[in-house]
Design a protein around this nucleic acid. Structure first.
Length: 512
RNA sequence: GCUCCGAUGGUGUAGCCCGGUCAAGCAUACGAGCCUCUCGAGCUCGGGGCGCGGGUUCAAAUCCCGCUCGGAGCACCA
């Protein structure tokens, strides 16, 4: 098979050799009492999605498809003051998921569901599963610490109910009251003891107005997972104790609790993945935007030319592991190269240009530059070099010539071989003379360099991963590429075309 | 401090529940060679790992205990 592919490639190069697909992840543990696999991805719309969010998102999507289930996207936007939702972030998230190939079957906004959370709260209070607590946070903490009930725990449900009314209608102010779910004041983990379910928050919300009581995470999450018949929850391990907290809600509802699977956090080597830090940096002007190449946002990765399947691949490779893992850029590069090499046409780009003056060129030379070394069927472009009195100018990269001694030989790829006579770093020029036309033997050790003709050069600016700009000259063919295309600048690296105009080409560097 | 988790080569993982077939598989990175008019791709080969210490057992990466290291939570955040 590989041999056949090789032969075909030599003949027409139309066959792409597919790698065998990697191993499948194990199936999710069975969730008894649930008729269907239902998963939810539940981000807080307070910033852009990062590689870190991609982990649960991709896993949920993977299992929803794999196990013939449903995927729910749920915006958890119930903290108007502490984690204020961003109006734009809702769309960012949908876009980013779309890019990853994730199309949720249902979308919910928790800010639309406040009445639902109220309804259950009332029911819980009536039945004595929850109560309105008027303790100051510090006061309650001391009861919690000692494992003793606070004075409000055992008050009559009717009292709690009237306090609840006051919370809703303005008779109580933020910080004065909170609804607590009764758990176990002697629970070995103090964090579990009578946790707060709803509180008063009068800050403005970008989507809805007129509400002053907002559910806290464990309340809205448990109620929603219950109502939406979520069978499996895949989320970060920071939620480990929340699973226990929420178990009380399911117990009171007399309903099975979804199977929780906690996964470790993702770190991206040398990048910031924390939404709050990203948003802060953005506000301080440390980054140029959500897609600043230094960021680990999905938007930045997309801008840099990473394919969504590469993100999916690294996520699926990490699997359902609870241990934290660090993604190496090297790995992303390798996977993306594999994803992109086949489609990336090759072009010449000269960084830090030097002018090379070549004399003694016997005749006009036509360089045939193939678009892809492994795919001759993509064709080539001819670049004609017309010497004047045997002399011609070329543009080459400083790095390739600045330290060359007279007598050094070079091969200008697809063109001819030269011998250096003189290098002048100040004027950035190299004098050389024509040596021969034929491709040198591999054993000769003659270095191959690329070049651009002055008559065929366009200013090219490449945005690098550290947000610096590399300027140089590229061949004019670059101006014919549509934005979004992935190309390879020969001996420089893979880049994504961002913007082209007649006079300048803007690229974003992907990786070597 | 308290409550929980986790630990397989540089990195990410498979195996651990149900001990032997694991002198540990895969990917990537790395090294060598082949191929190639790119510092890209492809092909072949290679080096590299079960955190430490005890115990159970004929047999332990797998079970038990202790230690070390790492992580998470202990918010009227999600």
């Amino acid at each position: 098979m590989a041999e056949q592919a090789e032969i075909l490639k030599r003949f027409g190069g139309i066959l792409r050799v597919e790698k065998p697909s990697k191993q499948e992840l194990p199936l999710l543990p069975e969730a008894r009492d649930f008729p269907q696999v239902v998963l939810r991805f539940a981000p807080n719309p307070d910033g852009p999605l990062t590689l870190g969010n991609a982990r649960p998102a991709v896993l949920c999507d993977y299992y929803a498809r794999r196990m013939n289930g449903r995927l729910i996207l749920r915006f958890e936007d119930t903290s108007p003051s502490v984690k204020p939702p961003l109006k734009e972030a809702y769309d960012w998230i949908i876009e980013d998921l779309e890019w990853l190939g994730i199309h949720p079957d249902e979308v919910y906004y928790q800010s639309d569901r406040l009445q639902t959370y109220y309804k259950y709260a009332e029911k819980f209070i009536e039945k004595g599963f929850a109560y309105v607590c008027l303790c100051k946070p510090e006061e309650f903490r001391s009861f919690e610490k000692r494992g003793e009930p606070c004075p409000h725990r055992d008050q009559d449900p009717s009292l709690s109910l009237s306090l609840w009314e006051k919370m809703l209608n303005g008779g109580l102010n933020p910080g004065e009251a909170v609804v607590r779910v009764k758990t176990d004041m002697k629970h070995p983990n103090p964090a579990i003891r009578d946790w707060p379910a709803l509180r008063i928050d009068v800050a403005k919300h970008p989507r809805v107005v007129g509400f002053r009581v907002w559910p806290l995470y464990n309340w809205s999450c448990a109620i929603d997972d219950y109502e939406m018949r979520v069978s499996h929850v895949i989320r970060g391990k920071e939620h480990l104790t929340n699973e226990v907290r929420q178990s009380y809600v399911f117990k009171y509802l007399n309903s099975p609790q979804p199977v929780s699977i906690h996964i470790g956090r993702v770190r991206l080597e040398g990048s910031v993945l924390s939404k709050s830090r990203i948003m802060r940096g953005l506000a301080e002007g440390a980054y140029t935007g959500l897609d600043d190449p230094r960021l680990g946002t999905l938007k930045a990765l997309r801008r840099r030319g990473f394919k969504p399947e590469v993100i999916r691949r690294v996520v699926l490779e990490m699997g359902l592991n609870i241990t934290e893992s660090t993604v190496k850029w090297e790995n992303l590069y390798a996977y993306n190269r594999e994803a992109v090499d086949w489609e990336a046409e090759r072009y010449y780009f000269v960084k830090n240009p030097f002018t090379m003056i070549v004399r003694s060129i016997p005749q006009q030379v036509e360089a045939r530059l193939v678009r892809h070394p492994s795919r001759p069927e993509l064709g080539y472009r001819n670049i004609v070099l017309k010497p004047l009195n045997g002399e011609a100018q070329l543009i080459v990269s400083s790095k390739d010539v600045e330290n060359l001694a007279p007598g050094s030989r070079l091969r200008l790829m697809s063109l001819f071989n030269i011998e250096v006579e003189h290098v002048d770093p100040h004027s950035k020029t190299v004098k050389a003379f024509f040596k021969s036309l034929e491709v040198p033997e591999k054993s000769s050790g003659i270095k191959l360099i690329h070049w651009v003709l002055p008559s065929d050069a366009v200013k090219t600016v490449v945005l690098m991963p550290d947000a610096s700009l590399v300027e140089g000259l590229g061949e004019s063919h670059l101006t014919r590429l549509e934005p979004g295309r992935i190309i390879q600048l020969v001996r420089f690296g893979f880049c994504k075309v961002e913007k082209v105009s007649k006079n300048v080409v803007n690229l974003v560097f992907s990786h070597p």
